[in-house]
């Protein structure tokens, strides 16, 4: 079947099997391997992208269902060599370790901040509970999203937390 969509502001058209998942279409057909696969139950969120502005797990959507849609993946976030504030927040606040959940986590955060420009910690934690991270314990991910939210509101982000005193035994 033929599908046409806009991916990262670029029009694409391709012939795909009707059963092909959107995540495979992005990865295999378009070579956009930043979107990852972590499970088959749409639980882990590694495959999160924006479809028409809504955060969507691309492993539970067929490519043909995205016909005519506007897709944004992690590769399309930075523009003109400028990182998106969420990407910057993850870097500045150590919001990632192995990096595997990171693209999906970043896209979830982008979606969250579109709906809520000034989320509380609880709202952030609820907002990303569809994305699993096995490395960080989420604490610094929350701090990264707070950093991005502040930046996007034009405010100074809170300082990092690791600057505390060590006791020399």
């Amino acid at each position: 079947m033929q599908v046409s969509m806009t991916v990262n502001r670029r029009a694409v058209t391709a012939d795909v099997e009707p059963r092909m998942l959107l995540v495979h279409f992005l990865r295999e057909e378009l070579g956009l391997t930043g979107t990852h696969i972590g499970c088959e139950t749409s639980y882990c969120g590694a495959c999160t992208v924006l479809v028409d502005g809504r955060t969507t797990k691309s492993c539970t959507m067929l490519a043909v269902q995205a016909d005519g849609a506007e897709i944004l993946t992690v590769e399309g976030l930075a523009q003109d060599g400028q990182l998106h504030p969420v990407q910057e927040g993850f870097w500045e606040r150590h919001g990632l370790q192995c990096g595997y959940c990171t693209p999906g986590m970043i896209m979830s955060a982008v979606g969250l901040l579109q709906e809520n420009a000034n989320p509380t910690e609880d709202e952030i934690r609820h907002g990303i509970e569809g994305n699993l991270c096995r490395c960080t314990g989420y604490h610094n991910i929350v701090r990264a999203i707070e950093y991005a939210a502040a930046k996007m509101r034009g405010e100074e982000p809170p300082p990092p937390e690791w600057e505390h005193e060590e006791v020399i035994a």
Binding site: I37, W91, H94, L96, G99, I106
Partner: peptide, 21 residues
């Protein structure tokens, strides 16, 4: 020094290279 990680710029841009990629 709590410097930012050197590996992160590729990971935050979806440019890591994992096995399935």
């Amino acid at each position: 020094h709590a410097v930012r990680r050197k590996e992160d710029d590729r990971f935050i841009q979806g440019a890591g290279r994992y096995l399935d990629d």
